[in-house]
Design a protein around this nucleic acid. Sequence first.
RNA 1: GCCCCCAUCGUCCAGUGGCCCAGGACGCCGCCCUUUCAAGGCGGUAACGGGGAUUCGAAUUCCCCUGGGGGCACCA
Length: 479
Amino acid sequence: MGETADMSVRVRFSPAPTGSLHVGSARTALFNFLFARHHGGTFVLRIEDTDRARSKDEWVVGIQDTLRWLGLDWDEGPVLQSDRFAEYLAAAADLLERGLAYECFCTPEEIKERNDAAMADGRSPGYDGRCRDLGDEERAAFAAEGRSRSLRFRTPDEGTSRFVDEIRGEVTVEWASVHDFVILRADDSPIFFLANAVDDIAMGITHVIRGEDLLDSTHRVLALREALGGGSQQSFAHLPLILGTDRAKLSKRHGAVALEEFRDAGYLPEAVCNYLALLGWSPDDGREVMALDEVVEAFTIAGVTHAAAAFDHAKLDWMNGEWIRRLTLDELAARARPLAEVRFGDRLDEDLFLAGLRIGQERAVTIGALLDQMDFLFVPDDEFEIGAESWEVLAATDRVDVVLGAVEEHVAGIEWDGAPVDLRDLLKAGEFKPRKVMPAIYAAIEGRHAGLPVFDAIALLGREKTLVRLRAARARLAK
RNA sequence: GCCCCCAUCGUCCAGUGGCCCAGGACGCCGCCCUUUCAAGGCGGUAACGGGGAUUCGAAUUCCCCUGGGGGCACCA
């Protein structure tokens, strides 16, 4: 709304390449993208692969593919932190030299032991500061013992840390409750906090938009940032987390959570972005179905919700149907073709494919489900089968053999011109109630009792194939 | 255990002291349309967690409780 473009805005999406893109991460990427585009700023992609053991090249590639699929293009990067270890090492050395960080000789096992003891005692876990004030001789002694050494950042002992979150307002915490934390591992690889602070300064990141799970760590990053001379003019916005409908952490138990799964199931990126944008944000005018550029236009970070939101697959399904219906047939075909090729291979027939999409579009939820309904068009006669549940429906239909026989006779007897085969008069003549007998006809011809409009289906399938299937169903019935 | 964040229909949002006995969307239920299932149309169900306080007046402000989520790693 007439807001001036702020070219100085620089945001980054910085995933760890330890797995596929999760809906939570995708939402973070989306909101960074929206903020950058709304302000005419720069969107940077940074790969946080400082944990070499868990990071994988395939995910570095996969995450980029998925972001592109979503339509979230970035302006700079990807910057790999694994290429910048020298910078982090230098920053760590500088902090050590200035006494802002110290060498810690405690092993992970020892720390865990002490934490467990503290917990058992009813005290809080967290680094106890054992190596905080070691003398030179003590350090030398530990080193002589061959002990490994990490680097810890020294946090203030007293006072209050505060920062203003763009979404939540002022957030405060007592420094006394923030323990000293590791910034460099024993093997000299940097920990996320260090790399994060160094890079945000180096890359001139002005706004940090990330998940609420990182809210508490902001105080630490800010302290590091200040110690590194980065100044404090960086603003933070923490997005509410995405949960399952049962308010528990979103997991596979709740259905698909990886964006690749949505893509492969035939969800449209427009629908996914649209749904995700509405999870924690909404435009002033209450619009729901919105294209990405419309969301960009209306987006404001202050309008983001404070409370965690549940991911509702049912609403995404509805949204996806809305977007499928907005596509032209050509567009739908272009989106569906890759999935259809995987599914049908050589059997895929372009004309039947387009015809199937045309009659299925208005009822589709996902492209995958639509393709399921089109399966009967491409399956060879000797592989055609009626689903178990659909067969039960067929077999339980009153006077089913009579209906199927009538349909068979009709199809065999009409003049064939390739037009949809209207069975309404036939049903009326036999005093069959459509709602009662149609499912059986669908099952016999399409293999499922609910599918694409069968009048069109018969025309697409052709007379012979239709007759073969009707006879097969009747024969099986006679057994 | 300690710390932080949050709290409106089942779910996602609107609501920033009176326009709210709370509005929209998804879901669900019913009706219509209809070649199945859908889609579409119409209608319906359903919420301000509890208690104090401030105020002429609170969903909206403050406090407490309760509840939910997150954090307390040589993960990010």
